[in-house]
Structure formats: C-alpha cells, structure tokens
Amino acid sequence: GKMTGIVKWFNADKGFGFITPDDGSKDVFVHFSAIQNDGYKSSDEGQKVSFTIESGAKGPAAGNVTSL
C-alpha cells in the first residue's frame, strides 16, 4: 500500500536519494525514475512524499513517488 515519508536527501546529479518513512521503518532508496512529477524528476530534502515499496535488484526501493 501507499506510505508517506520525508525525502532525507536527493542527489539530482546521480539521480537517487533516500526517503525516511513516517512509520519509523528503515530509510528507503529512491531512484529518479520512480518520481511521478511531470518534467524534471528530482526531489528536495524535506519534501513530504507518498510512495509504494517495490522490490528492486538491490533490495527495497520506493515506487510511485508523489509530492504531497
């Protein structure tokens, strides 16, 4: 299901970062391709987002990331 969290950091040059879930669980990796914004796929530190957890090649990753 959908979770909410805060972007801990995001490196636009490398195209990835981490989200800290609101439920206190482990930080989740986020790749720019998962960000659902139109246009520039980046996110700012401290941005509140909703997301799903997908199982990626390197473990859990955020999917369907949407700014709230």
Score class of each variant (00 low, 15 high):
Gly1Val: 13
Gly1Ser: 11
Gly1His: 13
Gly1Tyr: 11
Gly1Thr: 13
Lys2Arg: 12
Lys2Trp: 12
Lys2Asn: 09
Lys2Gly: 07
Lys2Leu: 12
Lys2Gln: 10
Met3Thr: 06
Met3Cys: 11
Met3Ser: 07
Met3Ile: 10
Met3Ala: 06
Met3Phe: 11
Met3Trp: 07
Met3Glu: 05
Met3Arg: 09
Thr4Leu: 07
Thr4His: 06
Thr4Met: 06
Thr4Gly: 02
Thr4Pro: 02
Thr4Asn: 05
Thr4Lys: 06
Thr4Glu: 04
Thr4Trp: 07
Gly5Val: 05
Gly5Ile: 04
Gly5Cys: 08
Gly5Trp: 04
Ile6Asp: 03
Ile6Gly: 02
Ile6Lys: 09
Ile6Pro: 01
Ile6Thr: 13
Val7Met: 12
Val7Leu: 14
Val7Ile: 15
Lys8Trp: 04
Lys8Phe: 06
Lys8Val: 07
Lys8Pro: 03
Lys8Glu: 03
Trp9His: 03
Trp9Tyr: 07
Trp9Lys: 01
Trp9Val: 03
Trp9Asn: 01
Trp9Asp: 03
Trp9Leu: 00
Trp9Cys: 10
Phe10Met: 03
Phe10Val: 05
Phe10Lys: 00
Phe10Tyr: 09
Phe10Gly: 01
Asn11Gly: 04
Asn11Val: 02
Asn11Glu: 04
Asn11Pro: 03
Ala12Thr: 11
Ala12Ile: 13
Ala12Met: 11
Ala12Arg: 13
Ala12Trp: 15
Ala12Leu: 10
Ala12Lys: 15
Ala12Ser: 11
Asp13Asn: 12
Asp13Arg: 12
Asp13Thr: 13
Asp13Ser: 13
Asp13Leu: 13
Asp13Gly: 10
Asp13Gln: 13
Lys14Gly: 05
Lys14Gln: 07
Lys14Tyr: 08
Lys14His: 08
Lys14Ala: 08
Lys14Trp: 11
Lys14Pro: 02
Lys14Glu: 05
Lys14Asp: 04
Lys14Phe: 09
Gly15Lys: 05
Gly15Trp: 03
Gly15Ala: 02
Gly15Met: 04
Gly15Arg: 04
Phe16Leu: 02
Phe16Ile: 06
Phe16Asp: 00
Phe16Met: 03
Gly17Ile: 05
Gly17Ser: 01
Gly17Glu: 01
Gly17Pro: 00
Gly17Gln: 00
Gly17Met: 05
Phe18Tyr: 08
Phe18Pro: 00
Phe18Met: 07
Phe18Gln: 02
Phe18Thr: 00
Phe18Glu: 02
Phe18Gly: 00
Ile19Ser: 00
Ile19Thr: 00
Ile19Gly: 00
Ile19Trp: 02
Ile19Lys: 00
Ile19Gln: 00
Ile19Phe: 01
Ile19Tyr: 00
Ile19Leu: 05
Thr20Asn: 02
Thr20Pro: 02
Thr20Glu: 07
Thr20Cys: 11
Thr20Ala: 10
Thr20Tyr: 05
Thr20Trp: 05
Thr20Asp: 01
Pro21His: 01
Pro21Ala: 02
Pro21Phe: 05
Pro21Val: 05
Pro21Thr: 05
Pro21Asp: 02
Pro21Asn: 03
Pro21Met: 04
Asp22Tyr: 05
Asp22Leu: 06
Asp22Glu: 06
Asp22His: 05
Asp22Ala: 06
Asp22Cys: 14
Asp22Thr: 07
Asp23Gly: 05
Asp23Ile: 05
Asp23Pro: 01
Asp23His: 05
Asp23Phe: 06
Asp23Arg: 02
Gly24Val: 02
Gly24Thr: 02
Gly24Leu: 04
Gly24Phe: 05
Gly24Trp: 04
Ser25Ile: 04
Ser25Asn: 06
Ser25Pro: 03
Ser25Lys: 05
Ser25Tyr: 04
Ser25Met: 05
Lys26Val: 11
Lys26Gly: 11
Lys26Trp: 06
Lys26Thr: 10
Lys26Met: 11
Lys26Arg: 12
Lys26Asp: 11
Asp27Pro: 06
Asp27Phe: 03
Asp27Met: 06
Asp27His: 05
Asp27Gln: 05
Val28His: 00
Val28Ile: 13
Val28Asp: 01
Val28Gln: 00
Val28Arg: 00
Val28Trp: 03
Phe29Cys: 08
Phe29Gly: 00
Phe29Ser: 00
Phe29Leu: 03
Phe29His: 03
Phe29Asp: 02
Phe29Tyr: 08
Val30Arg: 00
Val30Phe: 15
Val30Ser: 02
Val30His: 02
Val30Asn: 00
His31Met: 05
His31Val: 04
His31Tyr: 07
His31Glu: 04
His31Lys: 02
His31Phe: 08
His31Gln: 04
His31Gly: 04
His31Thr: 05
Phe32Met: 10
Phe32Asn: 07
Phe32Gln: 09
Ser33Pro: 02
Ser33Cys: 10
Ser33Met: 07
Ser33Asp: 05
Ser33Phe: 06
Ser33Tyr: 05
Ala34Phe: 04
Ala34Lys: 09
Ala34Asp: 07
Ala34Thr: 06
Ala34Pro: 03
Ile35Pro: 02
Ile35Cys: 12
Ile35Arg: 00
Ile35Thr: 04
Ile35Gly: 01
Gln36Asn: 12
Gln36Ser: 12
Gln36Asp: 10
Gln36Ala: 11
Gln36Met: 13
Gln36Ile: 14
Gln36Glu: 10
Gln36Trp: 11
Gln36Val: 13
Asn37Lys: 12
Asn37Tyr: 13
Asn37Gly: 14
Asn37Leu: 12
Asn37Trp: 14
Asn37Phe: 14
Asn37Gln: 13
Asp38Pro: 13
Asp38Met: 14
Asp38Ile: 13
Asp38Phe: 13
Asp38Asn: 12
Asp38Thr: 12
Gly39Met: 11
Gly39Tyr: 11
Gly39Cys: 14
Gly39Arg: 09
Gly39Leu: 12
Gly39Pro: 11
Gly39Trp: 14
Gly39Asp: 11
Tyr40Met: 12
Tyr40Lys: 08
Tyr40Thr: 09
Tyr40Pro: 08
Tyr40Asn: 11
Tyr40His: 10
Tyr40Gly: 11
Tyr40Ser: 09
Tyr40Gln: 09
Lys41Tyr: 12
Lys41Ile: 12
Lys41His: 11
Lys41Leu: 14
Lys41Met: 12
Lys41Val: 11
Ser42Ile: 14
Ser42Val: 14
Ser42Thr: 14
Ser42Tyr: 13
Ser42Glu: 09
Ser43Arg: 09
Ser43Asp: 07
Ser43His: 13
Ser43Ala: 15
Ser43Tyr: 15
Asp44Lys: 15
Asp44Cys: 15
Asp44His: 15
Glu45Cys: 14
Glu45Asn: 13
Glu45Ala: 15
Glu45His: 14
Glu45Pro: 15
Glu45Ser: 15
Glu45Leu: 14
Gly46Asp: 06
Gly46Glu: 06
Gly46Leu: 11
Gly46Asn: 10
Gly46Val: 09
Gly46Gln: 08
Gln47Cys: 14
Gln47Asp: 10
Gln47Pro: 05
Gln47Met: 12
Gln47Trp: 15
Gln47Lys: 10
Gln47Thr: 13
Gln47Tyr: 11
Lys48Asp: 03
Lys48Pro: 09
Lys48Val: 09
Lys48Trp: 13
Lys48Glu: 06
Val49His: 00
Val49Met: 04
Val49Tyr: 04
Val49Gly: 01
Val49Phe: 03
Val49Cys: 06
Val49Asn: 01
Val49Gln: 00
Ser50Pro: 01
Ser50Ala: 09
Ser50Thr: 09
Ser50Val: 08
Ser50Gly: 04
Ser50Cys: 13
Ser50Trp: 08
Ser50Gln: 09
Ser50Tyr: 08
Phe51Glu: 02
Phe51Gly: 02
Phe51Tyr: 10
Phe51Pro: 02
Phe51Cys: 05
Phe51Val: 02
Thr52Val: 11
Thr52Ser: 08
Thr52His: 07
Thr52Phe: 08
Thr52Glu: 06
Thr52Ala: 03
Thr52Gly: 02
Ile53Leu: 10
Ile53Ser: 04
Ile53Asn: 02
Ile53Met: 10
Ile53Tyr: 10
Ile53Ala: 01
Glu54Val: 14
Glu54Gln: 11
Glu54Arg: 08
Glu54Gly: 06
Glu54Lys: 09
Glu54Asn: 09
Ser55Gln: 14
Ser55Pro: 12
Ser55Ala: 13
Ser55Phe: 15
Ser55Arg: 11
Ser55Thr: 13
Ser55Asp: 12
Gly56Val: 04
Gly56Cys: 10
Gly56Thr: 15
Gly56Tyr: 09
Gly56Asp: 09
Ala57Asp: 10
Ala57Pro: 14
Ala57Leu: 13
Ala57Thr: 13
Lys58Asn: 11
Lys58Pro: 06
Lys58Met: 10
Lys58Val: 08
Lys58Gly: 09
Gly59Lys: 05
Gly59Ala: 03
Gly59Arg: 07
Gly59His: 05
Gly59Trp: 08
Pro60Lys: 07
Pro60Cys: 09
Pro60Trp: 08
Pro60Leu: 11
Pro60Met: 09
Pro60Phe: 10
Pro60Asp: 08
Pro60Ile: 10
Ala61Pro: 02
Ala61Met: 15
Ala61Ser: 13
Ala61Tyr: 15
Ala61Cys: 14
Ala61Thr: 14
Ala61His: 14
Ala61Phe: 15
Ala62Cys: 06
Ala62Asn: 02
Ala62Ile: 02
Ala62Gln: 01
Ala62Phe: 02
Ala62Met: 01
Gly63Arg: 13
Gly63Thr: 14
Gly63His: 14
Gly63Pro: 01
Gly63Phe: 14
Gly63Met: 14
Asn64Glu: 07
Asn64Ile: 05
Asn64Ser: 07
Asn64Tyr: 08
Asn64Cys: 12
Asn64Leu: 08
Asn64Met: 08
Val65His: 00
Val65Leu: 05
Val65Gly: 01
Val65Cys: 06
Val65Met: 05
Val65Gln: 01
Thr66Asn: 08
Thr66Phe: 07
Thr66Gly: 04
Thr66Ile: 12
Thr66Ala: 08
Thr66Asp: 05
Thr66Arg: 08
Thr66Trp: 06
Thr66Leu: 09
Ser67Asn: 13
Ser67Gly: 09
Ser67Trp: 15
Ser67Val: 15
Ser67Gln: 12
Ser67His: 14
Ser67Ile: 15
Leu68Val: 11
Leu68Trp: 06
Leu68Glu: 07
Leu68Ile: 13
Leu68Gly: 05
